[in-house]
Simulated scan of single mutants.
Amino acid sequence: MKKIKYTLIIFLLLFSTKEIAAQKDTIAQQRTARKMLRQGNELYQKKQFTDASVAYQKALGSNSNYDKAAYNLGNAFYQNNNFKEAIPQYELTAKTAKDKFTKAEAYHNIGNAMMESKNYQGAVDAYKNSLRNNPNDDETRYNLAVAQKLLDKQNQQNKDDKNKDNKDQDKKDKDDKNKDKNKDNKDGEDKDKKDEDKDKDGKGDNDKDKNQDPKQDDKKNQQKPKPQQGKMTPQQIKQLLESLNNEEKKTQKKMNAKKAQGKKVKQEKDW
């Protein structure tokens, strides 16, 4: 039983020693954090913002929840125009700060950094959060009005740009459509021209045939089959023979008349 008591006493002593050591480490880190914060503030007052940001980062390395170090680091980044890097530091302060005034200041600076980055929607939201924590801050209220005006102007510009892009796209589509239509018309004209040229070529071939050697034409004509004579009916043959016979009689009568004119007419004496 005594052995168990001794074991418990030793365990409690070891645990207490570790807890005391951890507390000492925490206290040491907090002291280091405060020391680096003061060093950063001195550099910040001298406008050595880059060196000041290094000191603040060391302070946060010793105590990650050190609100003042985070807030001042955001200010150092802001002064160096590193607005995007400053915003997360202000957000950390706004999240961890216990009093509303500190939260309002953090949101106010977030709005300022957003304004510098031309993120007007983010600036409007940040200033509104700042006023929720400190409604009496006239400077924040003024900045909110400016941010809202710039946001409206930005939205209108985006709307105009979108309409312009749509008009340009419609014009491009219309031009492409007209281009295709003109292309179709041109293709049709080219086809008609080709057909016309083809007809001219055919006419030229005919003219070429006219200029060929006549002997070749005779040869071609000789090669053509002769038309066959039509057959006559018996009636047509009879009529033809009668016609020939009548012509022959007429011819014979004319010949006899000529012979008679050549002879002297014998006259009878009138006694």
Rank of each mutant, 00 (worst) to 15 (best):
residue 1 M to E: 11
residue 3 K to I: 09
residue 5 K to Q: 13
residue 7 T to H: 10
residue 9 I to D: 04
residue 11 F to N: 05
residue 14 L to D: 04
residue 14 L to M: 12
residue 15 F to V: 03
residue 18 K to N: 10
residue 18 K to G: 08
residue 18 K to R: 14
residue 19 E to Q: 12
residue 20 I to G: 12
residue 21 A to D: 05
residue 22 A to W: 14
residue 24 K to N: 14
residue 26 T to G: 06
residue 27 I to A: 15
residue 27 I to T: 15
residue 28 A to P: 00
residue 30 Q to E: 15
residue 31 R to Y: 06
residue 31 R to Q: 14
residue 34 R to G: 06
residue 35 K to H: 11
residue 38 R to G: 10
residue 39 Q to M: 14
residue 40 G to D: 02
residue 41 N to C: 00
residue 41 N to Y: 09
residue 44 Y to K: 14
residue 50 T to H: 13
residue 50 T to S: 15
residue 50 T to A: 15
residue 51 D to Y: 06
residue 55 A to L: 03
residue 55 A to P: 03
residue 59 A to V: 05
residue 61 G to D: 04
residue 61 G to T: 06
residue 64 S to P: 12
residue 64 S to R: 07
residue 69 A to Y: 04
residue 73 L to Y: 06
residue 74 G to S: 02
residue 74 G to Y: 00
residue 77 F to S: 00
residue 78 Y to P: 02
residue 80 N to P: 00
residue 83 F to E: 04
residue 85 E to G: 01
residue 86 A to P: 03
residue 87 I to F: 06
residue 89 Q to R: 11
residue 91 E to W: 05
residue 93 T to P: 06
residue 94 A to I: 08
residue 95 K to L: 05
residue 97 A to I: 00
residue 99 D to Y: 03
residue 99 D to F: 03
residue 101 F to K: 14
residue 103 K to C: 00
residue 108 H to V: 00
residue 110 I to W: 07
residue 110 I to G: 03
residue 114 M to E: 11
residue 119 N to Q: 10
residue 122 G to L: 05
residue 125 D to K: 15
residue 125 D to W: 08
residue 129 N to V: 01
residue 131 L to K: 06
residue 131 L to S: 07
residue 131 L to E: 10
residue 131 L to M: 08
residue 139 E to G: 07
residue 140 T to Y: 02
residue 142 Y to R: 11
residue 144 L to Y: 04
residue 145 A to C: 01
residue 145 A to F: 09
residue 145 A to T: 04
residue 146 V to P: 01
residue 148 Q to G: 03
residue 150 L to M: 11
residue 151 L to A: 06
residue 152 D to V: 01
residue 152 D to L: 03
residue 158 N to M: 10
residue 159 K to F: 05
residue 159 K to G: 02
residue 159 K to L: 09
residue 163 N to H: 08
residue 165 D to I: 11
residue 168 D to Y: 08
residue 172 K to E: 11
residue 173 D to A: 14
residue 177 K to P: 02
residue 178 N to F: 10
residue 179 K to N: 12
residue 180 D to A: 15
residue 182 N to L: 13
residue 186 K to Y: 12
residue 189 E to A: 09
residue 190 D to E: 07
residue 191 K to W: 00
residue 191 K to D: 10
residue 193 K to F: 06
residue 193 K to G: 03
residue 194 K to F: 01
residue 195 D to W: 03
residue 197 D to S: 13
residue 197 D to Y: 07
residue 201 D to I: 01
residue 201 D to R: 14
residue 204 G to F: 07
residue 206 N to E: 14
residue 207 D to H: 10
residue 209 D to W: 03
residue 209 D to V: 07
residue 213 D to L: 04
residue 214 P to D: 12
residue 214 P to W: 01
residue 215 K to Y: 05
residue 217 D to I: 02
residue 217 D to W: 12
residue 221 N to W: 06
residue 222 Q to T: 05
residue 225 P to Q: 10
residue 227 P to F: 02
residue 227 P to S: 11
residue 230 G to I: 05
residue 231 K to W: 07
residue 233 T to D: 12
residue 234 P to C: 01
residue 235 Q to R: 13
residue 235 Q to T: 09
residue 236 Q to Y: 03
residue 238 K to R: 11
residue 241 L to Q: 15
residue 242 E to S: 13
residue 247 E to A: 15
residue 248 E to F: 12
residue 254 K to S: 15
residue 258 K to N: 13
residue 261 Q to L: 11
residue 265 V to W: 01
residue 266 K to F: 08
residue 266 K to C: 04
residue 267 Q to P: 03
residue 268 E to F: 12
